[in-house]
């Protein structure tokens, strides 16, 4: 169980105005839950992780991990949690096996005892046991880091952007591993800048500028959005974007891959009037279709498209 209440943190550097990294953030993660912090770079995800794993102190607020306070019981937390920092942080000049053995002895555990837990992940690393960690591919590196973080069988696992810089296939594989770990009863808190990974979490917090904008399961967040999402495409996409935004019934419209996603003011928009308007503006080949909203629509809707 992870609990954060009203956490604030600012970074002060000489000659600059203080930067607010976290602003009154509260959330809780139940035992055995896979919890995702989703947000762009600079939204405060890493700061939140560092506060929870006792690496930095919050300016305000209290937080606890499995009932242990992050300030008072920091030694207990350090002994018991698994942590994988944002950067690839295992020893590049040691081999795969040396890294695993080192972290096992650092935590005073027998590597073989933890094997059933990490077998799934370690299996694909085994052929490279004597290779230097620095010579592994991005996905393999993250698997090694995960093995090292799991070697002492932690109850709670903190993973800061584990899939950043990893190819799409390895990312999928990695998330599957996390879901397997969760079914072993491990509470996992993970952060990612990729919206499409939100679906893999039990519960997510959408973050921006150090604040949590929304906190719920993916399905709830999408259904709470209420408004329907429509996709619009045409020959001149830029002109189309401007015209959609100038339509009186449009609430929000964002470029989204091959089409523009549009939210209307009303629940039942008059699509034929909308189509006529766009046609009247001189747009050609206009295609309008109703879409199944995803979590990225939800994020764009909430933040009104402002990324920073």
């Amino acid at each position: 169980m992870i609990k954060a209440e009203h956490i604030s943190k600012s970074y002060v550097s000489a000659g600059h105005a203080p930067v607010k990294a976290l602003d009154d953030v509260s959330f809780s993660v139940s035992d055995g839950e896979l919890f995702g912090l989703i947000g762009p770079d600079g939204s405060g995800k890493t700061t939140m992780f560092r506060i929870l794993v006792t690496l930095i102190l919050a300016d305000k607020g209290v937080a606890s991990v499995n009932g242990m306070d992050v300030v008072k019981d920091y030694e207990k937390i350090r002994n018991s949690v698994g942590y994988m920092p944002g950067r690839f942080s295992v020893y590049q000049d040691l081999t795969v096996n040396e890294n695993i053995n080192f972290f096992a002895s650092l935590f005073g555990v027998d590597k073989e005892e933890s094997m059933p837990l990490i077998e799934d992940i370690y299996g694909s690393l085994r052929p490279f046991g004597n290779r230097l960690a620095g010579a592994l591919s991005g996905g393999m590196k993250q698997k090694l880091a995960l093995c090292c973080a799991l070697i002492h069988k932690p109850d709670v696992l903190f993973l800061d952007e584990p899939t950043t810089g990893v190819d799409p296939v390895s990312r999928k594989e990695f998330w599957q591993m996390l879901r397997n770990l969760r079914s072993n009863g491990i509470t996992i808190m993970v952060s990612t800048p990729y919206m499409d990974e939100a679906d893999m979490c039990d519960k997510i917090a959408l973050m921006q500028k150090g604040m949590i904008l929304a906190l719920d399961t993916t399905e709830n967040l999408i259904s709470q959005m209420g408004n329907q999402v429509w996709g619009v495409s045409g020959n001149n996409m830029y002109k189309l974007l401007c015209d959609v935004r100038s339509y009186r019934g449009t609430l929000r419209c964002y470029p989204f891959g091959n089409s523009h996603h549009v939210f209307f003011n009303s629940q039942e928009p008059d699509i034929s009037d909308f189509g006529n308007y766009l046609w009247g503006c001189g747009n050609e080949n206009v295609k309008i279709e109703r879409l199944e909203p995803c979590i990225e629509d939800c994020y764009l809707y909430i933040t009104d498209g402002r990324r920073i």
């Binding site: 560092r50 690496l55 350090r78 942590y83 950067r87 942080s89 650092l106 005073g108």
Partner: peptide, 13 residues
């Protein structure tokens, strides 16, 4: 610099 200090700090050592 390489970030491994974070790992060493979040350990029993």
């Amino acid at each position: 610099e390489t970030g491994t200090m974070e790992l060493l700090l979040v350990s029993p050592t």
